[in-house]
Write a protein that binds this DNA or RNA. Structure first.
Length: 667
DNA sequence: CAAACAACCTTTTTT
DNA sequence: AGGTTGTTTG
């Protein structure tokens, strides 16, 4: 038997092969420190950049984009994968300012949006239609709940079966981490381990349902992209050759599925640079694992590892505190951030307030003070663990007439009335979208789950369609007075020739009276409706509008847009997760109260607690000059039934010398 | 039998 | 502020 010939692969294959330019417009050497310079100018092969907080990660990526373009690489052949679309736009904009407009042509976006556009082209190859609907988390849960009810029927075991959000979390994690359902259960929900088989069956039904109704959830956008690239050699090769240079930001927050995707994308050239910081990994609930970073050299043999440690963001007193927070982590990869800024700057403040409202008042007054000292509101941010934690502060800020924009927490698009309107548009785009049908049918008087299901069955079976829906048909299922108006509206806007503006207008005409009936606070909601109309009018195609609403929904609610319009300055309120990668002159971290931050539900789980610590680290490292950590004393926690009185353990454990301690009192 | 209503529960963090 | 559950109404 003959041994198969050994294969020798040329490192410099057809793909990249770019040569360093003889002369560059930008003087990269003097603009960057040696580590950054190396990261920017190493052209080929896999590179891992470990960059601590504030070390100029973004600057490095921006300069690399510029450098690659200066090397003569077609910008459309450079791919920059980021965590949010906002951050990729920002980076490309900065690169364009640095070099020139060519940088705007670089392909950029999130993993999900990248998957989406590839799948729109190749959907038929994997058994989907190209105008598939994207399910957001709420939609997925709705479908799962529907199937859950069907599956359980009248079983007595109902009580012990996980609820829809748990089911969704388990299924999603299994997809994102490439682990089996039972493995996920074993790790995180051992009390449901007995149900593993049922959950697996339910997941099969869920997957089949999505195919049947031409739907993809967030995970599918990744999963099917990976499947497409694995299965179809041609697509894989073309796509990989198309993007000769791939960069990935925030690599510590990618999961196994995403790293699979990166591997496939680079299969033809291995020109990939990933940037990340293990100390800032805060998305494990989504299947992210900072070990992805550590595994990178294994996944991409021969990877060059570059570490950037010089911090340009914060003053030394802030760095000393943040270094100590992460120093106390049980699992850490040694890094020692330093700055050349010297010991100038104030020590961070740790401020105890007697109540939640005192905390809000303190922050509000402090902000007014700062503004008088000439600090712009744009340079100030208030950060918190959970979206709702800013409610009390929002009231105080409004009283004091301080305009703010809030990021994170409950989103515009998740409000019931906004979803209602979107659902009407979705059934027009995809008549098989049963979730949306269900939603809009239930708005009708006299229509409940049973009647809605009957209509949906007929629609999916093809017995009826939007064009020939009549009130008479519906009366045969169930009676209701609004039915005629609904069908008329849908039939009117169904043709593709009807513009998106007219579609929205027709829906609003029909929907507004329903909204008035449904909600006591319909006047507030009215504003959202108009905001939605304004957003929709910017789009030419219904499909792209709906896709953007699912993938990159506007995060600001109506109130905030208004504030922004009247003042050109505004304060930032944000969840810590949404503040990732950003920085401000002054940062407040509020509710640093043990039981709230870290969250009480992390207690007893070391891994979760460590993630809370990293979250605190991310929050505090956002500050350039002032860091003010506040907490209220004596909050009653319903869940644990305990009175929370201690500051966050991550703060409590810090040596006295690292911060100034204050207490808020009345005059 | 299906829908409407009223009383709890439950609530991270995001694509 | 939403959903889930149990009860009453049509």
């Amino acid at each position: 038997m003959n041994a198969p010939p050994k294969v020798f692969t040329l490192r410099r294959s057809s793909s990249g092969g770019a040569q360093p330019p003889k002369q560059t417009k930008i003087d990269y050497k003097s603009a960057l420190n040696p580590a950054q310079y190396e990261a920017v100018t190493t052209l080929d092969g896999p590179i891992l950049v470990i960059a601590g907080a504030g070390t100029g990660k973004t600057t490095t990526l921006v300069h690399r984009v510029s450098y690659l373009v200066e090397c003569g690489i077609d910008p459309r052949r450079i791919l920059l994968l980021t965590f949010t679309r906002k951050s990729s736009e920002e980076m490309l904009r900065r690169a364009a300012v640095l070099l020139d407009g060519r940088c705007e042509d670089v392909a950029g976006g999130t993993f999900h949006s990248f998957g989406n556009s590839l799948l729109r082209k190749h959907a038929p190859q994997i058994g989907f239609g190209s105008s598939f609907t994207i399910l957001d988390q709420g939609d997925s849960e709705d479908v799962i709940n529907l199937l859950r009810t069907q599956y359980l029927g009248k079983d007595a075991d109902k009580k012990r079966f996980p609820r829809k959000n748990t089911l969704n979390a388990v299924m999603s994690k299994s997809v994102n981490t490439l682990m089996s359902i039972s493995k996920v259960l074993e790790n995180e929900y051992p009390h449901y381990l007995e149900q593993a088989n049922s959950i697996e069956q339910l997941k099969e039904r869920y997957d089949a349902y999505k195919v049947k109704h031409n739907m993809m959830d967030y995970d599918d956008l990744l999963l099917h992209t990976v499947a497409l690239l694995k299965q179809f050699t041609g697509v894989r090769e073309t796509t990989s050759k198309q993007y000769a240079y791939v960069m990935v930001d925030e690599y510590q927050d990618t999961n196994k599925l995403q790293s699979e995707l990166v591997k496939l994308l680079c299969s033809q050239h291995n020109n990939v640079m990933v940037v990340g910081d293990d100390s800032q990994s805060i998305y494990s609930f989504r299947g992210a694992n900072f070990r992805n970073i550590m595994d990178f050299p294994k996944d991409f043999p021969g990877a060059k590892v570059i570490t950037i440690e010089e911090n340009y963001r914060s003053t030394q007193p802030i760095l000393s505190l943040t270094n100590q927070i992460i120093e106390n982590a049980t699992e850490k990869f040694p890094k020692n951030l330093f700055t050349q800024k010297g010991i100038t700057g104030a020590k961070p403040h740790i401020v105890a307030a007697h109540s939640e409202n005192y905390q809000s008042q303190y922050i509000t007054e402090k902000i007014l003070e700062l503004r008088e000292d000439g600090v712009s509101l744009n340079d100030i941010a208030v950060l918190f663990r959970n979206g709702y934690m800013s409610f009390d502060l929002e009231i105080e800020l409004t009283k004091a007439n301080i305009p703010f924009v809030k990021y994170g927490g409950m989103k515009f698009i998740e409000a019931a009335h906004v979803k209602d309107i979107i659902s009407h548009l979705r059934v027009v785009e995809n008549p098989k979208d049963a979730v949306s049908w269900h939603r809009i049918l239930l708005l009708l008087d006299g229509v409940g789950p049973k009647a809605a299901q009957a209509v949906i069955d007929d629609l999916v079976a093809g017995n009826i369609s939007i064009q020939n829906l009549t009130p008479e048909y519906f009366t045969s299922v169930r009676s209701g007075e609004n039915v005629g108006a609904l069908f008329q509206t849908l039939a009117e806007i169904y043709p593709e020739t009807v513009s998106i503006q007219d579609k929205i207008a027709a829906i609003l005409k029909y929907y507004k009276p329903i909204m008035k009936n449904q909600y006591d606070d319909h006047q507030k909601r009215q504003k959202d409706v108009e905001a939605l109309r304004n957003i929709a009018e910017r789009y030419r195609s219904l499909n792209s509008f709906l896709t953007d609403m699912a993938l990159e929904p506007p995060s600001e609610s109506q109130v905030d847009i208004e504030a922004e319009g009247t003042d050109d300055e505004s304060l930032t309120l944000s969840t810590i997760h949404s503040a990732k990668g950003l920085e401000w002159h002054t940062v407040f971290v509020m509710y640093a109260l043990d039981g709230m931050f870290p969250s009480a539900r992390a207690a007893g789980n070391e891994k979760d607690m460590e993630e809370e610590r990293r979250l605190m680290y991310v929050a505090c490292t956002r500050a350039k000059v002032n860091l003010i950590i506040t907490y209220p004393m004596g909050i009653y926690d319903r869940e644990s039934g305990m009175l929370l009185t201690k500051p966050s353990r991550f703060i409590e454990e810090l040596p006295e010398s690292l911060a100034e301690r204050w207490v808020v009192s009345e005059e």
